[in-house]
Amino acid sequence: MSKTLLKVTGLKKSFSIPAGMFEKKKLLKAVHDVSFMIPEGKTFSLVGESGCGKSTTGRLISRLIEPGDGEIWLDGEEISQKKEAQLKGMRKKVQMIFQDPYASLNPRMKVRDIVAEPLTIHTNLSRAERYKQVSEILEVVGLSDYHANRYAHEFSGGQRQRIGIARALIMKPKLIIADEPVSALDVSIQAQILNLLKELQAEFDLTYLFISHDLSVVEHISDHIGVMYLGTIVESGPKEVIFSNPQHPYTKALLSSIPIPDPKLRRERIILQGDLPSPVNPPAGCRFHTRCPVAMDICKGTEPPVKPGETAGHFVSCHLVE
Protein backbone atom coordinates (compact mmCIF):
# COMPACT_ATOMS: atom_id res chain seq x y z
CA MET A 1 0.00 0.00 0.00
CA SER A 2 1.33 3.37 -0.89
CA LYS A 3 0.98 6.16 1.59
CA THR A 4 -2.12 8.29 1.92
CA LEU A 5 -1.74 11.74 0.38
CA LEU A 6 -5.12 13.22 1.23
CA LYS A 7 -7.42 12.22 4.02
CA VAL A 8 -10.67 13.99 4.71
CA THR A 9 -12.80 13.21 7.74
CA GLY A 10 -16.20 14.56 8.71
CA LEU A 11 -16.08 17.51 6.34
CA LYS A 12 -19.08 19.83 6.76
CA LYS A 13 -19.94 23.16 5.25
CA SER A 14 -23.06 25.31 5.31
CA PHE A 15 -23.70 28.58 3.56
CA SER A 16 -26.14 31.09 4.96
CA ILE A 17 -28.31 32.40 2.21
CA PRO A 18 -29.88 35.85 2.29
CA ALA A 19 -33.45 35.66 3.46
CA GLY A 20 -36.32 38.08 3.04
CA MET A 21 -36.82 40.88 5.52
CA PHE A 22 -39.10 38.96 7.86
CA GLU A 23 -37.81 35.47 7.24
CA LYS A 24 -35.41 33.52 9.37
CA LYS A 25 -31.93 33.23 7.93
CA LYS A 26 -31.63 29.96 6.02
CA LEU A 27 -28.73 27.56 5.91
CA LEU A 28 -27.76 25.70 2.77
CA LYS A 29 -26.05 22.52 3.89
CA ALA A 30 -23.78 22.01 0.93
CA VAL A 31 -21.50 19.37 2.40
CA HIS A 32 -22.67 17.12 5.20
CA ASP A 33 -20.17 14.76 6.78
CA VAL A 34 -17.90 13.76 3.93
CA SER A 35 -14.95 11.44 4.57
CA PHE A 36 -12.56 9.79 2.15
CA MET A 37 -8.87 9.27 1.49
CA ILE A 38 -6.65 9.15 -1.60
CA PRO A 39 -3.44 7.11 -1.73
CA GLU A 40 -0.51 8.76 -3.44
CA GLY A 41 -0.53 8.42 -7.22
CA LYS A 42 -4.17 7.38 -7.41
CA THR A 43 -7.33 9.05 -8.68
CA PHE A 44 -10.37 9.50 -6.51
CA SER A 45 -13.52 10.79 -8.17
CA LEU A 46 -16.46 12.50 -6.62
CA VAL A 47 -19.48 11.97 -8.79
CA GLY A 48 -22.99 13.29 -8.41
CA GLU A 49 -25.64 15.58 -9.79
CA SER A 50 -25.82 19.36 -9.49
CA GLY A 51 -26.08 20.59 -5.93
CA CYS A 52 -24.69 17.39 -4.40
CA GLY A 53 -21.75 19.28 -2.92
CA LYS A 54 -18.95 17.77 -4.98
CA SER A 55 -17.57 21.13 -6.12
CA THR A 56 -17.87 22.59 -2.63
CA THR A 57 -15.88 19.64 -1.31
CA GLY A 58 -13.15 20.36 -3.86
CA ARG A 59 -13.08 24.03 -2.92
CA LEU A 60 -12.93 23.22 0.79
CA ILE A 61 -9.92 20.98 0.24
CA SER A 62 -8.19 23.60 -1.91
CA ARG A 63 -9.07 26.15 0.79
CA LEU A 64 -10.79 28.44 -1.68
CA ILE A 65 -13.77 28.97 0.59
CA GLU A 66 -13.92 29.58 4.32
CA PRO A 67 -13.36 26.29 6.14
CA GLY A 68 -16.23 24.44 7.74
CA ASP A 69 -16.01 21.57 10.23
CA GLY A 70 -13.94 18.44 9.83
CA GLU A 71 -10.33 17.62 9.16
CA ILE A 72 -8.27 17.74 5.97
CA TRP A 73 -4.93 15.96 6.15
CA LEU A 74 -2.63 16.66 3.23
CA ASP A 75 0.70 14.85 3.15
CA GLY A 76 0.59 14.39 6.93
CA GLU A 77 -0.39 17.94 7.72
CA GLU A 78 -3.76 19.18 8.94
CA ILE A 79 -4.74 22.15 6.77
CA SER A 80 -8.43 22.71 7.35
CA GLN A 81 -8.17 25.54 9.88
CA LYS A 82 -4.85 27.14 8.94
CA LYS A 83 -4.60 30.82 8.15
CA GLU A 84 -3.80 31.81 4.56
CA ALA A 85 -0.28 32.87 5.58
CA GLN A 86 0.43 29.34 6.84
CA LEU A 87 -0.81 27.73 3.64
CA LYS A 88 2.19 28.55 1.42
CA GLY A 89 3.42 24.96 1.45
CA MET A 90 -0.02 23.59 0.75
CA ARG A 91 -0.58 25.99 -2.16
CA LYS A 92 2.51 24.58 -3.86
CA LYS A 93 1.38 21.00 -3.37
CA VAL A 94 -2.21 21.43 -4.50
CA GLN A 95 -3.20 22.87 -7.86
CA MET A 96 -6.58 23.14 -9.52
CA ILE A 97 -7.96 22.63 -13.01
CA PHE A 98 -11.28 24.30 -13.64
CA GLN A 99 -14.28 23.38 -15.71
CA ASP A 100 -14.49 26.40 -17.94
CA PRO A 101 -11.28 26.85 -19.91
CA TYR A 102 -12.65 30.15 -21.19
CA ALA A 103 -13.19 31.79 -17.82
CA SER A 104 -10.30 30.36 -15.84
CA LEU A 105 -7.56 32.04 -17.88
CA ASN A 106 -7.10 35.79 -17.52
CA PRO A 107 -8.02 37.24 -20.93
CA ARG A 108 -5.55 40.11 -20.52
CA MET A 109 -2.48 38.00 -19.91
CA LYS A 110 -0.31 36.18 -22.39
CA VAL A 111 -0.16 32.42 -22.17
CA ARG A 112 3.39 32.34 -20.87
CA ASP A 113 2.52 34.72 -18.04
CA ILE A 114 -0.56 32.70 -17.19
CA VAL A 115 1.41 29.48 -17.06
CA ALA A 116 4.30 31.13 -15.20
CA GLU A 117 2.05 32.66 -12.55
CA PRO A 118 2.58 29.97 -9.89
CA LEU A 119 6.35 30.41 -10.35
CA THR A 120 6.01 34.17 -10.03
CA ILE A 121 4.12 33.69 -6.80
CA HIS A 122 6.18 30.99 -5.15
CA THR A 123 9.73 31.33 -6.47
CA ASN A 124 12.39 33.97 -7.01
CA LEU A 125 13.30 32.75 -10.46
CA SER A 126 14.22 35.34 -13.03
CA ARG A 127 11.87 36.02 -15.90
CA ALA A 128 14.08 34.13 -18.35
CA GLU A 129 14.21 31.10 -16.06
CA ARG A 130 10.45 31.17 -15.62
CA TYR A 131 9.83 31.32 -19.35
CA LYS A 132 12.25 28.46 -19.88
CA GLN A 133 10.19 26.30 -17.57
CA VAL A 134 7.02 27.45 -19.33
CA SER A 135 8.36 26.27 -22.69
CA GLU A 136 9.20 22.90 -21.19
CA ILE A 137 5.81 22.43 -19.59
CA LEU A 138 3.94 23.57 -22.70
CA GLU A 139 5.77 20.87 -24.58
CA VAL A 140 4.65 18.33 -21.99
CA VAL A 141 0.96 19.18 -22.43
CA GLY A 142 1.18 19.08 -26.20
CA LEU A 143 1.52 22.76 -27.02
CA SER A 144 4.62 24.46 -28.32
CA ASP A 145 6.65 27.46 -27.36
CA TYR A 146 5.15 29.16 -30.37
CA HIS A 147 1.87 29.43 -28.45
CA ALA A 148 3.42 31.15 -25.45
CA ASN A 149 3.32 34.68 -26.76
CA ARG A 150 -0.39 34.68 -27.52
CA TYR A 151 -3.53 35.49 -25.58
CA ALA A 152 -5.76 32.74 -24.25
CA HIS A 153 -8.82 33.67 -26.34
CA GLU A 154 -6.91 32.87 -29.52
CA PHE A 155 -7.11 29.19 -28.67
CA SER A 156 -9.82 26.58 -28.96
CA GLY A 157 -11.41 25.00 -25.89
CA GLY A 158 -9.17 21.95 -25.86
CA GLN A 159 -6.00 24.01 -26.22
CA ARG A 160 -7.09 26.33 -23.43
CA GLN A 161 -7.65 23.38 -21.15
CA ARG A 162 -4.10 22.28 -22.00
CA ILE A 163 -2.91 25.73 -20.93
CA GLY A 164 -4.84 25.33 -17.66
CA ILE A 165 -3.20 21.94 -17.14
CA ALA A 166 0.25 23.38 -17.87
CA ARG A 167 -0.34 26.05 -15.23
CA ALA A 168 -1.37 23.40 -12.72
CA LEU A 169 1.70 21.28 -13.49
CA ILE A 170 4.43 23.88 -13.42
CA MET A 171 4.89 23.76 -9.63
CA LYS A 172 5.22 19.97 -9.78
CA PRO A 173 2.30 19.59 -7.37
CA LYS A 174 1.37 16.41 -5.54
CA LEU A 175 -2.39 16.75 -5.70
CA ILE A 176 -4.43 18.12 -8.58
CA ILE A 177 -8.06 18.92 -7.98
CA ALA A 178 -9.84 18.81 -11.33
CA ASP A 179 -13.34 20.20 -11.22
CA GLU A 180 -15.27 18.95 -14.29
CA PRO A 181 -12.18 19.44 -16.46
CA VAL A 182 -13.69 17.98 -19.62
CA SER A 183 -17.39 18.70 -19.40
CA ALA A 184 -17.17 21.94 -21.39
CA LEU A 185 -15.29 20.26 -24.24
CA ASP A 186 -16.37 18.58 -27.43
CA VAL A 187 -16.42 14.79 -27.38
CA SER A 188 -13.42 14.38 -29.67
CA ILE A 189 -11.41 16.83 -27.55
CA GLN A 190 -12.58 15.29 -24.27
CA ALA A 191 -10.76 12.07 -25.09
CA GLN A 192 -7.53 13.95 -25.83
CA ILE A 193 -7.62 15.71 -22.48
CA LEU A 194 -8.52 12.56 -20.53
CA ASN A 195 -5.62 10.72 -22.16
CA LEU A 196 -3.30 13.61 -21.37
CA LEU A 197 -4.36 13.60 -17.72
CA LYS A 198 -3.65 9.88 -17.48
CA GLU A 199 -0.25 10.19 -19.15
CA LEU A 200 0.73 13.04 -16.86
CA GLN A 201 -0.31 11.05 -13.82
CA ALA A 202 2.01 8.23 -14.78
CA GLU A 203 4.86 10.56 -15.69
CA PHE A 204 4.76 12.88 -12.66
CA ASP A 205 3.26 10.51 -10.09
CA LEU A 206 0.29 12.83 -9.59
CA THR A 207 -2.67 12.26 -7.33
CA TYR A 208 -6.02 13.42 -8.66
CA LEU A 209 -9.21 14.45 -6.98
CA PHE A 210 -11.52 14.33 -9.97
CA ILE A 211 -14.93 15.97 -9.74
CA SER A 212 -17.47 15.12 -12.40
CA HIS A 213 -21.11 14.43 -13.14
CA ASP A 214 -20.25 12.08 -15.98
CA LEU A 215 -20.01 8.48 -14.84
CA SER A 216 -18.47 7.21 -18.06
CA VAL A 217 -15.64 9.72 -17.78
CA VAL A 218 -15.23 8.90 -14.10
CA GLU A 219 -15.02 5.19 -14.79
CA HIS A 220 -12.28 5.76 -17.30
CA ILE A 221 -10.04 7.87 -15.12
CA SER A 222 -10.62 6.73 -11.52
CA ASP A 223 -9.22 4.19 -9.13
CA HIS A 224 -11.73 4.95 -6.41
CA ILE A 225 -15.11 6.61 -6.60
CA GLY A 226 -17.36 8.39 -4.13
CA VAL A 227 -20.97 8.85 -5.17
CA MET A 228 -22.49 11.98 -3.63
CA TYR A 229 -26.11 12.84 -3.07
CA LEU A 230 -27.25 16.02 -1.32
CA GLY A 231 -24.00 16.67 0.50
CA THR A 232 -23.15 13.14 1.62
CA ILE A 233 -21.19 10.28 0.11
CA VAL A 234 -23.79 7.52 -0.20
CA GLU A 235 -21.40 4.92 -1.55
CA SER A 236 -17.67 4.77 -2.13
CA GLY A 237 -15.19 2.15 -3.13
CA PRO A 238 -12.87 0.84 -5.82
CA LYS A 239 -14.06 1.60 -9.33
CA GLU A 240 -14.67 -2.05 -10.21
CA VAL A 241 -16.96 -2.55 -7.24
CA ILE A 242 -18.97 0.61 -7.80
CA PHE A 243 -19.59 -0.20 -11.44
CA SER A 244 -20.07 -3.96 -11.31
CA ASN A 245 -21.65 -4.43 -7.90
CA PRO A 246 -23.25 -1.20 -6.72
CA GLN A 247 -25.19 -1.51 -3.47
CA HIS A 248 -26.84 1.83 -2.92
CA PRO A 249 -30.13 2.35 -4.80
CA TYR A 250 -28.97 5.80 -5.87
CA THR A 251 -25.77 4.46 -7.41
CA LYS A 252 -27.82 1.84 -9.22
CA ALA A 253 -30.24 4.43 -10.57
CA LEU A 254 -27.41 6.75 -11.60
CA LEU A 255 -25.66 3.96 -13.49
CA SER A 256 -28.88 2.98 -15.12
CA SER A 257 -29.61 6.57 -16.22
CA ILE A 258 -26.53 6.98 -18.38
CA PRO A 259 -27.39 6.73 -22.05
CA ILE A 260 -25.07 4.08 -23.47
CA PRO A 261 -23.63 4.75 -26.92
CA ASP A 262 -24.66 1.39 -28.28
CA PRO A 263 -28.17 0.91 -29.64
CA LYS A 264 -27.99 -2.84 -29.03
CA LEU A 265 -27.81 -2.22 -25.32
CA ARG A 266 -31.09 -0.34 -24.97
CA ARG A 267 -32.49 -1.54 -21.70
CA GLU A 268 -35.05 -1.10 -18.99
CA ARG A 269 -33.86 1.76 -16.88
CA ILE A 270 -34.43 2.56 -13.27
CA ILE A 271 -35.97 5.98 -13.70
CA LEU A 272 -36.03 7.95 -10.49
CA GLN A 273 -39.22 9.84 -9.85
CA GLY A 274 -39.35 13.48 -8.85
CA ASP A 275 -36.70 16.16 -8.60
CA LEU A 276 -33.64 16.62 -6.46
CA PRO A 277 -34.72 18.02 -3.08
CA SER A 278 -33.30 21.40 -2.13
CA PRO A 279 -30.16 21.32 0.04
CA VAL A 280 -31.72 24.17 2.05
CA ASN A 281 -34.32 21.79 3.32
CA PRO A 282 -32.96 18.27 2.91
CA PRO A 283 -35.22 15.34 3.79
CA ALA A 284 -34.88 13.92 7.30
CA GLY A 285 -33.48 10.42 7.75
CA CYS A 286 -31.86 9.06 4.63
CA ARG A 287 -31.61 11.99 2.26
CA PHE A 288 -32.45 9.82 -0.69
CA HIS A 289 -35.67 8.33 0.70
CA THR A 290 -37.96 10.75 -1.17
CA ARG A 291 -36.85 9.36 -4.52
CA CYS A 292 -35.75 5.89 -3.51
CA PRO A 293 -37.63 3.09 -5.28
CA VAL A 294 -37.06 0.72 -2.33
CA ALA A 295 -37.51 3.10 0.62
CA MET A 296 -38.69 1.63 3.92
CA ASP A 297 -40.19 3.23 7.02
CA ILE A 298 -36.88 3.37 8.84
CA CYS A 299 -35.38 5.47 6.00
CA LYS A 300 -37.70 8.38 6.76
CA GLY A 301 -36.55 8.81 10.34
CA THR A 302 -33.04 7.47 10.77
CA GLU A 303 -29.97 8.45 8.85
CA PRO A 304 -28.24 5.25 7.69
CA PRO A 305 -24.75 4.66 9.11
CA VAL A 306 -21.74 4.04 6.88
CA LYS A 307 -21.34 0.29 6.58
CA PRO A 308 -18.39 -1.56 5.03
CA GLY A 309 -19.25 -3.67 1.99
CA GLU A 310 -17.94 -7.08 1.05
CA THR A 311 -14.84 -5.81 -0.70
CA ALA A 312 -12.12 -3.94 1.14
CA GLY A 313 -12.52 -0.19 0.81
CA HIS A 314 -16.19 -0.39 -0.19
CA PHE A 315 -18.60 1.62 1.97
CA VAL A 316 -22.36 2.08 1.67
CA SER A 317 -24.83 4.21 3.61
CA CYS A 318 -28.09 2.38 3.24
CA HIS A 319 -30.42 0.60 5.64
CA LEU A 320 -30.88 -2.21 3.13
CA VAL A 321 -27.25 -3.24 3.28
CA GLU A 322 -26.44 -5.74 6.02
Binding site: L64, R91, F98, S104, N106, R108, P118, I121, G164, R167
Partner: peptide
Amino acid sequence: ETVFVEAAKSMGASHFRIMFQHILPE
Protein backbone atom coordinates in the same frame (compact mmCIF):
# COMPACT_ATOMS: atom_id res chain seq x y z
CA GLU B 1 -16.19 36.50 -8.91
CA THR B 2 -14.42 35.45 -12.11
CA VAL B 3 -12.94 31.97 -12.31
CA PHE B 4 -9.48 33.26 -13.16
CA VAL B 5 -9.40 35.20 -9.89
CA GLU B 6 -10.44 32.02 -8.12
CA ALA B 7 -7.66 30.24 -10.00
CA ALA B 8 -5.14 32.82 -8.82
CA LYS B 9 -6.33 32.36 -5.24
CA SER B 10 -5.94 28.61 -5.53
CA MET B 11 -2.34 29.17 -6.61
CA GLY B 12 -1.72 31.16 -3.47
CA ALA B 13 -1.45 34.59 -5.08
CA SER B 14 -1.24 37.44 -2.56
CA HIS B 15 -4.07 39.92 -2.12
CA PHE B 16 -1.85 42.57 -3.67
CA ARG B 17 -1.19 40.43 -6.74
CA ILE B 18 -4.84 39.51 -7.19
CA MET B 19 -5.92 43.14 -6.89
CA PHE B 20 -3.35 44.65 -9.19
CA GLN B 21 -2.57 41.84 -11.63
CA HIS B 22 -6.04 40.36 -12.09
CA ILE B 23 -8.74 42.75 -10.91
CA LEU B 24 -7.37 46.20 -11.79
CA PRO B 25 -6.98 45.42 -15.53
CA GLU B 26 -10.63 44.38 -15.57
